[in-house]
Amino acid sequence: MYTARETDVPLVGPLVYALQRAYSSSSHERGVGLGHGWSHSLAWSLVRHRRSLEVHAAFGAPVRHPLEPDQETLTVSGVGTFRIGPDFIVLADDEDVLYRFEATSREPVRSYRLTEVFDRARTSSRDEIFQRRRQLR
């Protein structure tokens, strides 16, 4: 069972963004602050393994992509390009919106949490988006 995505919080301004939510019974083991099975458009997370990057997109099942230990970029069709730094990863999607993930754990397996959404001009909705995300928890 699943629900269609609903837009709860449209953010307007230089960086337009919509906070959406949806339910899927196939995601019943994943909890992102709205209850198990529920997800929202800021529920991205990444896990960097020794030779792969596991992408947990906001909606859908996690997908592992091959990644060499010293590889600095990874392009994923339909998602965008990941630029990999020592303690962060930035995803540039196909619409030129950038998503910054910061490490929340150490080697050998590192977890990354979404911390900022911005455009190439560095217009950020970080404060408003993440304040609203905290309100959802």
Score class of each variant (00 low, 15 high):
38 W>H: 11
112 Y>K: 02
129 I>L: 15
137 R>H: 14
77 S>H: 10
35 G>Q: 07
128 E>S: 14
30 R>N: 08
36 H>V: 10
41 S>V: 10
39 S>N: 09
130 F>Y: 12
9 V>G: 00
81 T>A: 00
32 V>F: 04
54 E>Q: 13
46 L>K: 05
69 P>Q: 04
55 V>I: 15
77 S>F: 10
100 R>I: 01
94 D>C: 07
85 G>P: 00
52 S>E: 12
47 V>Y: 01
4 A>V: 10
124 S>F: 07
1 M>D: 14
58 A>F: 09
109 V>W: 03
15 L>K: 05
28 H>V: 15
52 S>D: 12
36 H>K: 14
88 F>W: 10
114 L>W: 02
29 E>W: 14
23 Y>D: 00
72 E>S: 09
93 D>R: 06
106 R>C: 02
133 R>N: 08
99 Y>W: 15
27 S>C: 08
44 W>R: 01
109 V>G: 01
117 V>C: 00
125 S>Q: 12
11 L>K: 05
115 T>I: 12
43 A>H: 07
62 P>T: 04
6 E>Q: 14
25 S>P: 02
65 H>L: 05
42 L>I: 01
136 L>I: 10
70 D>C: 05
46 L>A: 07
9 V>P: 00
54 E>D: 04
131 Q>A: 15
130 F>W: 09
58 A>C: 09
86 P>N: 14
20 Q>W: 07
81 T>V: 08
120 R>F: 01
88 F>A: 14
135 Q>P: 00
72 E>W: 00
59 F>W: 11
11 L>I: 15
115 T>P: 01
128 E>M: 11
69 P>G: 05
49 H>L: 11
116 E>G: 04
24 S>V: 04
116 E>D: 15
7 T>P: 03
64 R>F: 02
60 G>W: 10
120 R>M: 07
112 Y>W: 06
17 Y>I: 03
79 V>G: 04
64 R>W: 01
53 L>T: 05
91 L>C: 03
34 L>E: 11
